[in-house]
Write a protein that binds this DNA or RNA. Structure first.
Lengths: 148, 148
DNA sequence: TCTATAGATGCATTAGAAATGCATGATTAG
DNA sequence: CTAATCATGCATTTCTAATGCATCTATAGA
């Protein structure tokens, strides 16, 4: 009596956000040192192309500072303790509304948009309590990132 | 100096959840009366096939009570005041984790899974404060649903 | 009993967006 | 001048939600 037609239920973050966080955490672990995109991509075995564009984006948004040319690379634009997960997710997942009521017939008198908006804020509020510098459970949790 | 390569940033709910909520709100507005799937699909101009499976799912989950055969239809299985938006979303978007750390190299010492888990709960907690019976801004906001 | 109407179910297909790959340009150290 | 690195645009692939179609089951009423 169970549904055969299984829906892969979501409510997941995009890989875009995933990679952004991994990159930022990597930079935070290197505490100021210049790191190349290639290095991060290889460390996580993820698409360098995709990561490149994400870094681009993070650079324009003021999260990282990029340096071109030989011996170039990335570094956090601000201290890791001043960047929250919420700030990052807010940016990578967009600031737009969670729901699209443009085609809904009951949008007029419906209170759900407000409720979802509030829920989203509550979600981000929790993420705002966590900083890049808090991502590691223990001080040396990400030590292996240094060992190339 | 802006990125040409635009990422359609998400963090959106699926249409599956969207339709589920619309259907439940429709039923709540009809307060006990039997309503057909076709009727809801036409009222919102959405895919009857998709809605059919969603209703199926909602039936199995105990949100609605379906009646087959001629003059059959749907009704809420419980009072609208006892069904929260959070309960519905929890079901339609799945109870699984928000992030997939299975392939992440730093999953061991990373605290983000816990943070996201907490954020998700905060999100749902807000949605749990809202019941189907609260969806309408005013008592007669959805009156036009009756006028077929 | 027969028929019309409703939900139940499975499978195939489409659509849309995220993710990826590729090619090329721009910048800088040595 | 060259190698290394980020910057950018476009094409392609991949994934999965969304949809469509066909058929089965159940029930009311003529």
């Amino acid at each position: 009596m169970q549904l055969e037609y299984i829906y892969c239920k979501k409510m997941k973050l995009t890989r875009y956000t995933d990679y952004a966080l991994r990159a930022l955490i990597y930079l935070a672990a290197h505490d100021g040192g210049l790191v190349s995109i290639r290095q991060i991509a290889q460390a996580h075995d993820i698409s360098q192309n995709h990561l490149m564009k994400i870094i681009q984006d993070l650079g324009a948004a003021g999260f990282v500072k990029t340096t071109r040319g030989r011996h170039g690379g990335l570094a956090l634009a601000r201290p890791a303790a001043e960047i929250t997960i919420g700030q990052v997710v807010r940016h990578t997942e967009g600031d737009s509304r969670l729901v699209d009521c443009s085609t809904c017939r009951i949008a007029e008198g419906c209170s759900l948009p407000d409720v979802f908006s509030e829920a989203r804020e509550a979600f981000l509020a929790v993420l705002d309590k966590c900083h890049l510098s808090d991502a590691a459970r223990t001080p040396d949790a990400f030590r292996h990132l240094f060992v190339v």
